[in-house]
Design a protein around this nucleic acid. Sequence first.
DNA 1: CTGAAAGCGCTAACAT
DNA 2: ATGTTAGCGCTTTCAG
Lengths: 357, 357
Amino acid sequence: MWSGTLDPTEEGPLTASIRDVAGRAGVSVGTVSNVLNRPDVVSEATRTKVLDAIAALGFVRNESARQLRAGSSRTVSLVVLDMANPFFTDVARGVEDVVNAASLAMVLCNSDDRPEKEAAHLGLLAEQRVHGVLITPTAELTPQLDALRDRGVPVVLVDRRAPGPHQCAAATDDVLGGRLAAEHLLERGHRRIAFVGGHAALPQIRERHAGVESAVREVPDTELTVLSPGELSVAGGREAAARVIGLPASRRPTAAVCANDLLALGVLQEMVRHGVRVPDEFAIVGYDDIDFAAAAAVPLSSVRKPRQELGRRAAELLLDEGREGHRHEQPVFEPVLVVRESSMVRRDVAADREGAA
Amino acid sequence: MWSGTLDPTEEGPLTASIRDVAGRAGVSVGTVSNVLNRPDVVSEATRTKVLDAIAALGFVRNESARQLRAGSSRTVSLVVLDMANPFFTDVARGVEDVVNAASLAMVLCNSDDRPEKEAAHLGLLAEQRVHGVLITPTAELTPQLDALRDRGVPVVLVDRRAPGPHQCAAATDDVLGGRLAAEHLLERGHRRIAFVGGHAALPQIRERHAGVESAVREVPDTELTVLSPGELSVAGGREAAARVIGLPASRRPTAAVCANDLLALGVLQEMVRHGVRVPDEFAIVGYDDIDFAAAAAVPLSSVRKPRQELGRRAAELLLDEGREGHRHEQPVFEPVLVVRESSMVRRDVAADREGAA
DNA sequence: CTGAAAGCGCTAACAT
DNA sequence: ATGTTAGCGCTTTCAG
């Protein structure tokens, strides 16, 4: 016999449970559950009865209860370094496509490039028994990530190479990217080049730096100035540019490779503000090739990464982790240099420079 | 007597429960729960015993179980129209600050301006018994929102006026915003003005349009051309600009007010691509004043809204909905016009224009 | 201060 | 095809 809490004549103000539905439809809870999860196994007649009751009561499944039973949630989490960086929202778009197609939900977490925030998020995600975690970690890898993996939660690194073979990662060849940017500037005749990075703890940044450095080293009589503004943002770029401008002319770089486009945009702004002509007096190459790069005051040359594809691939790897006989994969995408106005030296200027050299 | 599933000598590969902890610490589950939730009520000695067991087992609370018991989750959801629009990530930042301070988590959902996606998200959120929903709804208000509210889930509209007094909303005076933009262009001597909106169903867009229209109407011998590209994005802006360029010179507008900055950036790009000089031949005013507006090829004039503040305020209202004696509030923020180069006519050109008129 | 036990809503055996 | 029931992990009375 059913003894629900709801008077069947009036719809309760609060949430109806599966038992209320069963009561109203005159069936058992098991049957209601079947209607919800295996509709084919229940007769047409009772199914409509149940569906009617559901509609009448405004019943909505309680996901917590499902999860508790199932042991894990239907949610995949993407933890990014900077939600405001379009690079990451593009990655997120790729993730979302794949994850939604698998009828899972994506939740976006922002670590703000701060380990404490990252740790807090990972803690919550662990408590929520998320289905999997996609993450671009801050600086060094947290032990929390291993802990998660130990508990059986798939973890895939995004835009970051895996430190070992025991995990999946979808990354970009950032050494190559840095090299492409630097070689381009060297070919254009630049000899004093700046690398605008962030705090050097981030491996992606270190790799880009390494690429730039090795390219610059291969050419004689070159000089590399490294700048590390406080954050990888437009403000950080402005900060770095201000420092460049402050250098004595003899040591001042004539071009910069920036570790991302936000920095590049900031450098550009500050240069323009000080009347430094870009690219004639100072050339700039960004990194990521976010959409705004092409729309900048001076359209920005940039090292393009397959942003959505990175997210998609990472998500696919994550979903595969659950399957039988999964093998960890670590695809590395090749970046491509997109040359725009910010690094195109006009012929006359180039000639001047050669004349002076 | 305890009968857990874990051999106390080895740490289980899977998740330990509160019972395992209790077993290992030699106390009851109630006590473990107390250590977790009301540490002050348990003696120093047992507390450390329990804490040790927790550490040894790598125990992590199961949030689903907590939620099931509590009836609602510790999560607030923000549903936005376009995750890739920096306006919304700025709003999200404001929300996050408030929500985290209340030790709740924020999850960001992207409706992509599509009612079906919005509906799908709201459905999931209902199942998850979220603590509250902040939303910039697509077009007309979904019945689902009322349904959520009926179930006792607080809902606050963001960047959108409430249709009635029975809900909270944090909005901007978009009629004023549209008017500010249009008056500015009229003062600069423009008489044929374009309004670049999206599909006119979005009330925010309609209001901006209304503001522009009323300002234009007040001046004799003016003409307003309305363009409605497919989406409120950079691509949409390019599309609109292409249409403007296609108009016969006699009817072609000399300036545009765009419904958001992405559109404005698109218009700018397309104009530049066709050799139309901005602002001399075509002036542009955007809307939202996202950070990238100032960094555009031609720095963009824009109607500034308090983006983070909008998010913060909305989140505060949401949190207040839970409290005793809550009164619905509908703050309306005043936008401010920020004039930059994209709408500054050079003196000589202005003189030409006057001479011609 | 601690232990015992009920129950949140759901699913999946198992029984009918 | 449908009903019955155990139990997922946790919190919270209520006893002791």
